[in-house]
């Protein structure tokens, strides 16, 4: 059985995108170690509601580490100190009795705060809309086994495709760059024969949308890779660079 812990929780509160935010401090008592971080926030919110106060707003949905909805910058780490896990998969047994836990929203010009810990990540959708797809008409596909794909390529494409679009890469990056996100999609599709046809157009379109939306330039610090809950490799960024430079040199 996990032991219970008590700690100080500092949570960012902000009423709206334009409002000034501040930290609010709460004392959390006897939280069981097998409580997930988000369940701990549920407990906090129940407390707040019982005091007739407004609960802390944060994004969350599947609570099993796959939807990419949860965010939270915990003690200096996107998705908290655990590696290869999202905030919803972070358990309180990672923390110690007496700790101070600071919870902040993703901070990046590309992700403005909506309220408290909730940020607006529609920029990612816009980047996807710019070219993160293969143009195939419903019902027009040939038999799935007609094009053989070497297993290593398929596996590598799968690794890139496991991106959950949570935005931790941008949150971790001192440049607020979305390169890991963009490169994961460009890589996945560039590795597959079906996606090769549009590879050049896709790399250019997605990158220019990323730039347009105010994300920064990649300076290869690798913070994104270290904080990515799905451990997406920066080798994807190298591939994006390659695809992009190739496309530009061809033009």
């Amino acid at each position: 059985m996990d032991k219970n812990i008590s700690f100080t929780l500092k949570v960012w509160r902000q009423n709206g995108p334009k409002e000034k935010g501040h930290f609010e401090t709460f004392q959390m008592k006897d939280i069981p170690g097998d409580t997930s971080f988000l369940e701990m926030l549920d407990i906090l919110n129940e407390q707040l509601i019982s005091e007739r106060k407004e609960p802390v707003v944060f994004d969350h949905d599947c609570r099993e580490g796959i939807c990419g909805m949860c965010s939270l910058y915990i003690n200096g780490y996107p998705h908290g100190p655990a590696t290869g896990a999202t905030t919803c998969q972070l358990y309180m047994r990672r923390f110690n009795d007496g700790d101070t836990i600071t919870v902040e929203p993703w901070r990046s010009a590309g992700f403005p705060v909506i309220k408290d810990l909730m940020v607006d990540r529609t920029a990612y959708d816009k980047i996807m809309q710019a070219g993160g797809y293969i143009s195939v008409r419903t019902g027009s596909a040939e038999d799935a086994n007609n094009i053989l794909i070497p297993k290593p390529n398929a596996d590598e494409a799968m690794d890139a495709a496991s991106c959950i679009g949570c935005g931790a890469c941008v949150a971790a990056c001192k440049n607020g760059s979305a390169m890991l996100f963009v490169s994961a999609k460009v890589s996945q599709l560039a590795l597959l024969p079906q996606g090769k046809v549009e590879a050049a157009r896709r790399a250019k379109a997605m990158l220019s949308k990323m730039d347009e939306l105010g994300f920064g330039n990649c300076t290869n610090t690798r913070a994104c890779e270290a904080e990515c809950p799905k451990c997406i490799s920066i080798s994807n960024i190298a591939r994006l660079n390659r695809e992009f430079i190739k496309a530009k040199l061809k033009d």
Partner: peptide
């Protein structure tokens, strides 16, 4: 890049 980082800074930062 500083502009892309936004106006608010993190209160706590850690380096992986």
């Amino acid at each position: 890049n500083r502009k892309a980082r936004g106006t608010e800074r993190y209160a706590v930062e850690a380096k992986p």
